[in-house]
Amino acid sequence: MSQSLAPECNELKERYDTCFLKWYSEKYLRGISTSDNNECATMFKEYNVCLKRALKERGIDKLLDEAREDFKENDATLLGKKKCK
């Protein structure tokens, strides 16, 4: 994968990405593991702690919150009801 937005999280991200892609292609796509993806959970947790800190430092967490507010309004007015399949 490309880099993480936070260089200090690169290594953790790389480990998680590799785990995810393997799990996805070898298990999920083959219908072997369709109820959980626990095997990458520990790696995700470590990566997520690092990433969350970085998002906060860069103010991206606020952008995310604002966007979530905005989605509700936009989705309701211009995109109609979300496609439920």
Partner: peptide, 15 residues
């Protein structure tokens, strides 16, 4: 420039 995963989960009821 960068790509990060902020959430990934399986919905147990739908898979």
């Amino acid at each position: 420039l960068s790509t990060d995963t902020i959430d990934s989960h399986i919905d147990p009821s739908t898979g």
